[in-house]
Amino acid sequence: MKSVVLLSDARHPVSGRAVLSRLEAQAIGLGTALGGTLTGLHAGDCEDGVQESLGHGLSALDILSLPPEADPVSALTDFLKAQKADLILAGRRGEGGFDSGLLPYALAEALGLPILADAVALTPGEATDTLVVDQALAKGARRRVTVRLPALVTVHPLAPAPLPFAFGAMRRGTIRRHVAEAADASTDPVEERPYRARPKLMRTSSATASAENLHVGPEPEEAARLILDYLESNGIRRYG
């Protein structure tokens, strides 16, 4: 089995430094566990972050050199067509670029591959050329989909933690650089400006809410009733 992990030009959320996205590192972990050959693929101009992938379990990495603002889809499509990979793994959305998460879908469309999102586990199917993908749903539920390969799969953050980083392995990994034809990025009609953090809606119940809900020394039965009612009225669980 031949798998390729797509690597984006991710930025560290705190420092803004080029790093490997955690989700893509998890994708490497899933791919490694499947066995077969696994390589990384990045289209762009920055190698600092993606080369970390070699320390997380990849043995080789292909880099398609593209100018920073170029649209990578056509270059990736051409390269992947030639590769004939059985499985293409990707994160959910880039972290550092246009971040729209459309790239895997655009790629799947261009390659004519089925795409499955939010994988947390991958196992080879019973029949050859099939793959069983466990997709994460809310509340711990899973959707187990058997798909015929080749396919494109994106990874969910609940997938197993990435393999720890090994500096020595990164140093020894192979980087292959390719020249790619840059397609013009579609010009955005939107305005770009510096990021401004906006507060999220409050989730934690406020102190006053606890004030009305402080019960000192209630009868145990009363306490039990209060707890179950609280759970039910907040829609956490329903009993009976």
Binding site: V14, R17, H56, A161, L163, P164, F165, F167, A169
Partner: peptide
């Protein structure tokens, strides 16, 4: 263990990952 194998307890890999990402 750490540099060549990456065989470090997962909980200890966390701070090392942060170090790589943001020096802290």
């Amino acid at each position: 263990q750490t540099l060549e194998l990456g065989a470090i307890p997962l909980k200890a890999e966390e701070p090392l990952g942060h170090y790589r990402g943001c020096d802290e």
